[in-house]
C-alpha cells in the first residue's frame, strides 16, 4: 500500500511521477497487486478490530461499529466486518453513485476519495475507515451547481452508459492534486486504472484536460 503522507508536488513533476511504479499512481497494475492482498486485509481487520459485544473466543464478531464522514456527513454503522467500503456505501448508506464493476480493484468504477486521495472502495473494508473522510460522486456538486469536471464530462460527452463515470470522475478529482504531467499521455497513464467499456476514453481525457487548463482559483 502507498504512503498517504507522501507530500504532493506542484503538478510540474516529470512524467515519471505518474508512471505505474510511482507511489501516487493508481494504475491497473497497482490495483491488481493490491487485489491479491485483499483477503489478507480482511483477515487482518478481523483480527485487530475490537469486538462490539463479546462473542465467544475464536469466533468472528457478527458486527463492528465504525464511524466515518461521507461527503461531510458523520455516519455511524454497525457492519459485518467483511463489508467492503463499497458495499457499505451502496447497500447500507444508499449511496449507489459509487459503482461495483469487478469487486477486485481491477476496473476503478468504485473509486472514491479517502482523506483526499483516490482509493478503491471495493478493496478496503468499511471498518478500516474509522475517522476517515470519504468523498463520493454524490458530494461533488454544490446543490445544483455541478463540479467543473462533471460539467466538462457532459460537454465533452465523456460518458455513454454511465456506469464507470462516477469512478472516472472521482479518479479525475483525485488526479487534480497529484503530480501529473501536463500532456494528454500523462493523463492517460494516470487514468488507466479506470476502465470504460463503452470507450469514451478520448472524451474523458478531453474533459479532464479542459478542467486542468482552467485558470486556478
Amino acid at each position: 500500500m502507498t504512503d498517504s503522507k507522501q507530500p504532493l508536488s506542484d503538478g510540474s513533476a516529470p512524467a515519471e511521477a505518474s508512471s505505474p511504479e510511482a507511489p501516487e499512481g493508481t494504475t491497473r497494475r497497482e490495483f491488481i497487486a493490491t487485489a491479491t492482498v485483499g483477503s489478507a486485509l480482511l483477515l487482518e481487520a478481523c483480527r485487530h478490530a475490537p469486538p462490539v459485544e463479546g462473542p465467544p473466543p475464536g469466533t468472528a464478531p457478527a458486527e463492528l461499529e465504525v464511524t466515518f464522514k461521507v461527503n461531510g456527513q458523520l455516519q455511524t454503522l454497525k457492519v459485518d466486518p467483511r463489508t467492503s467500503l463499497l458495499d457499505a456505501l451502496r447497500e447500507r448508506l444508499g449511496l449507489t453513485g459509487t459503482k461495483k464493476g469487478c469487486d477486485h480493484g481491477q476496473c476503478g468504477a468504485c473509486t472514491v476519495l479517502v482523506d483526499g486521495r483516490r482509493e478503491l472502495s471495493c478493496l478496503s473494508l468499511a471498518v478500516m475507515h474509522q475517522g476517515a473522510e470519504v468523498s463520493t460522486v454524490e458530494g461533488l456538486a454544490q446543490g445544483d451547481t455541478l463540479h467543473p469536471l462533471q460539467q466538462a464530462f457532459i460537454e465533452q460527452d465523456a460518458l455513454q452508459c454511465g456506469y464507470c463515470t462516477s469512478g472516472q470522475l472521482m479518479s479525475a478529482v483525485g488526479l487534480m492534486s497529484e503530480p501529473c504531467g501536463a500532456s494528454d499521455d500523462d493523463v492517460r497513464e494516470a487514468m488507466s486504472g479506470n476502465l470504460c467499456r463503452c470507450s469514451a476514453y478520448p472524451n474523458i481525457i478531453a474533459a479532464i484536460q479542459q478542467v486542468r487548463r482552467l485558470p486556478k482559483l
Binding site: 454524490e138 460527452d157 454511465g162
Partner: peptide
C-alpha cells in the same frame, strides 16, 4: 449534450 448526462455525472441514474 446527452439528456441523461447530469443524472449520470451526479450518480443519480438508477
Amino acid at each position: 449534450d446527452r439528456v441523461d448526462g447530469k443524472l449520470k455525472v451526479t450518480g443519480k441514474a438508477q
